[in-house]
Design a protein around this nucleic acid. Structure first.
Lengths: 232, 232
DNA sequence: GCAAAAGTGTTCTTAGTACACCCATGC
DNA sequence: GCATGGGTGTACTAAGAACACTTTTGC
């Protein structure tokens, strides 16, 4: 008996992997978008993505695609949701396993690829119209990011390794869309003992120089195993 | 130019939809399992599932499969995670869009289907060995259920429309794996104003009869829109 | 009348919130 | 010396945790 005799022998939808890549700067939260050079949606902005190859896991495909499309190598990413609406691609049914990713720096040079004429970081708040169902995917990612930020130390993935408390607070305020009391924020985050003060200070133009901190991932893992859970 | 000219023309993985169906009784939390009648994993217990047909969304496939495999019609369900490890099925790459579902009653008669010799409710705690990567899927669903129970009123989906506070508390204790103080639990849940007392009481064998309550989904939606969020 | 489960309040502790001034630097 | 952003402490309030006895029914 053939080993594959019980698998599904009818036409199969194609499988895409798309990724919402977030980047942060003092201006606000950004998404990496590509301008399509080919139909459908030629000239429209879309999320970076591509097809899942056979023998590849979703995570592997994601890694390959981010490297191909944006030259991004090391990155925090996790699966977001799988979009299966048969009408989401006008050509034929293509299901999309969507991921979302956080980069520490927007310095990466997004390179336009084969089907892409341009790549740019766009402010989330600019609400650019997107091709396919990518607006829905982006919204799902935004909701997830805000929820995740509250319960898991993912904010640090959007900042350089060393950052000031003001930068961190501003990031939280931006993503959670609310202002936070400076003293309470500092008290709470420092009380967790997950930030190590560096031997450095940084001065940002004017004003008193700020202490730089570094997130201690090791300590976080240790505490997590002991039942601690992050909350902000 | 052919409309499909830019889609992925290479061999495509098949797409399955699998579902972790939870049911609750005073004995504990149960999962609906099927015993496979065909290779691979003939004789092993697995989660109900099947292939996604072309033109079908994941949610539609889920609905069809639950009806076919278990005669389950109205049910609370949501997408859990998509499992893509190429080795998860020994025949060929089959990605699985996993769902988890909650049923209010385990009275449904799980009917053995074409590839299935038996269907049974099994206690989660019995830790039965499962075929494919279904143990991993089940564990993911358990973690998600526990997390969700704390922040969303999903517990009611596992109870009949009318229930006592003791039943509800016991459900929380079972799924969260910790005991809860009776007075504090009642105070908190009643303070939310989401439970309507029925004009009925029920007596369970011996002991004082208990008040029956009903979850007011309408009120919950209303409050949610006003920024309220459930927490227990 | 006793076994069994339902129901009920108060105190203490902890975490959250609100709030205003001084400090170090660049120009 | 002034503009700019960094840094700090306390009092009040709300929510969570701990805790033991009375009530109603079946047998």
């Amino acid at each position: 008996m053939c080993a594959a005799s019980h698998t599904y022998q009818f036409p199969r939808p194609a499988i895409a992997v798309d990724c919402v890549v977030f980047g942060y700067s003092p201006e606000g939260l950004h998404v990496l978008l590509l301008k399509r050079g080919v139909e459908p949606f030629a000239g429209k902005w879309v999320l970076p993505g591509g097809f899942l190859h056979q023998g590849e896991s979703g995570d592997e495909a994601l890694k390959r695609l981010l490297l191909e499309k944006a030259g991004i190598q090391k990155i925090w990413a996790e699966q977001l949701y799988t979009f299966t609406n048969p009408a989401r691609d006008p050509r034929e049914q293509i299901i999309s396993i969507a991921y979302f990713a956080l980069v520490k720096s927007m310095d990466i040079e997004p390179v336009a690829g084969r089907d892409t004429v341009e790549a740019q970081w766009k402010l989330v708040q600019s609400r650019i119209a997107l091709g396919f169902d990518h607006a829905e995917i982006l919204q799902t990612a935004l909701d997830r990011l805000a929820a995740k930020l509250r319960w898991q130390p993912v904010g640090f993935e959007l900042l350089p390794p060393k950052f000031t408390l003001s930068e961190l607070q501003h990031l939280y305020e931006t993503i959670l869309r609310k202002s936070i009391d400076k003293r309470n924020f500092r008290k709470k985050i420092l009380a967790m003992n997950l930030l190590d003060a560096c031997d450095e200070q940084v001065t940002a133009g004017s004003g008193r120089p700020a202490q730089l901190y570094r997130f201690n991932a090791k300590k976080y893992k240790e505490l997590s195993r002991q039942g601690f859970h992050f909350e902000l």
